[in-house]
Amino acid sequence: MKLTMDREDILPVLANMANIADRRPVQPILAHVLIEAAGQHCRFIATDQEVQLSVDKDHPVDMPGSCAVPARKLYDICRALPEHTPLEFHTDGDKLLLKAAKSRFTLHVLPASQFPYLSIHSNRCQGNCDAAQFREALAVTANTMAQNDARIFLNGVLLEIQGQEMRLVATDGHRLAMMTLPFASSLEAESFQCILPRKAVMELLRIVSTGDIQLSLSDTSFVLDDGSQQFACKLIDAKYPDYRRVIPQGHPFFAVIDRQSFKSALQQSEVLVSDRNPTTQVHLDDNLMTLRSRNEEQEEGEVELTIAYQSQALDIAFNSRYLTDTIQIFNQDQIRMRVKEGNSAAVFTPMDVDNPLYILMPVRL
């Protein structure tokens, strides 16, 4: 194999490959990126046997061939080189020779025949959606995934297809986030559900950008294709709980909150929040929200902000970190907060629609 590429063309690809490749692999080749080159085309593939990323590049090849190169070492070398440096790759037996300006590197490579591709099963559902909307839905729900929970189905994001809509849902048992987006589906059944694992969600947030993407779903695998790169992963083998039972109904009171004012008030209140028990008490009264915090040293903070609220006075306490996540989930200027009583969950949405939706359970004091 022999080819020459500009550093700026390959560096973003290698960055994503290094994230995918396993740093402590059971099989040494899982720490490698597979490079395949022939004709006018190059392909880069990395996998840890749970997720897999394949990126195609239209680029002339001087000599066809393939090999598996240590992903992290190759990325670190290219990252350390000056911008727009031409990189010449040339395999010689079990070595890869890399020339870059006045620098020379020799890396040990493994045969391409040993590379363990992730197995992908036949589709049950396929369709297209907007990449930016899909990424936004992932970002909204990623905030509320559990981490290392014994209930494995919580350590990921539910992807549900119904008709021509796709819904993403995640919960850790204390809060829930949900977002719906249009999806041009080929699904023949009434609905389809699968659970994307945490690592897949975090990698998708890195690689999904704009344009139109195609999703292919089966009972065991998920594949995203944007025309130049293909991401695949295994799914969590579990049934997701009925999230609709968690969505409160009949919350009669609501407050309209300016997002930037809320952000500033939360930042002030958090200064004196307890590290061991991060709780913020929220008091709602006539067009006023008061945030109260307290820590182990008996220090106290109280921050007031003007809101639109004209219902009965109400006190409710939340985990401070989860309350602050509302600022990350919503990018609208105004947020609507629906409440019922002090021991009931609060529902956060944009002003005029219920999409996205964020449910936050109260803390019992």
Results as ranks from 00 to 15, higher is better:
Gly211Trp: 12
Gly211Asn: 15
Asp212Glu: 11
Ile213Asp: 14
Leu215Arg: 13
Ser218Cys: 04
Thr220Pro: 07
Thr220Trp: 11
Ser221Arg: 09
Phe222Asn: 11
Asp225Thr: 15
Asp225Ser: 15
Asp226Phe: 08
Asp226His: 12
Gly227Val: 09
Gln229Asp: 11
Gln229Arg: 15
Gln230Cys: 09
Cys233Gln: 05
Ile236Gly: 11
Ile236Leu: 14
Asp237Leu: 01
Ala238Gly: 14
Lys239Asn: 14
Arg245Gln: 09
Gln249Met: 10
Pro252Arg: 01
Pro252Gly: 00
Phe254Cys: 15
Phe254Pro: 07
Ala255Gly: 12
Val256Met: 08
Val256Cys: 00
Ile257Asp: 06
Asp258Thr: 02
Asp258Cys: 09
Arg259Cys: 02
Gln260Tyr: 14
Phe262Ser: 10
Lys263Ile: 08
Leu266Trp: 06
Gln268Gly: 09
Ser269Ala: 05
Ser269Gln: 06
Glu270His: 02
Val273Gly: 00
Val273Asp: 05
Val273Thr: 04
Val273Arg: 00
Val273Gln: 02
Arg276Cys: 03
Pro278Arg: 02
Pro278Glu: 01
Thr279Cys: 06
Thr280Ile: 15
Thr280Lys: 11
His283Ile: 01
His283Pro: 04
Leu284Tyr: 07
Asn287Gln: 05
Leu288Asp: 08
Leu288Tyr: 09
Ser293Met: 10
Ser293Phe: 12
Ser293Lys: 10
Arg294Thr: 03
Arg294Gly: 02
Glu297His: 05
Glu297Lys: 01
Glu297Gln: 01
Glu299His: 05
Glu300Trp: 08
Gly301Tyr: 04
Gly301Phe: 03
Glu302Pro: 07
Glu304Lys: 15
Leu305Ser: 10
Ile307His: 04
Tyr309Trp: 03
Ser311Glu: 00
Gln312Asp: 13
Ala313Pro: 07
Leu314His: 02
Asp315Tyr: 10
Ala317Phe: 06
Phe318Ser: 01
Arg321Glu: 03
Thr324Asn: 04
Thr326Ile: 10
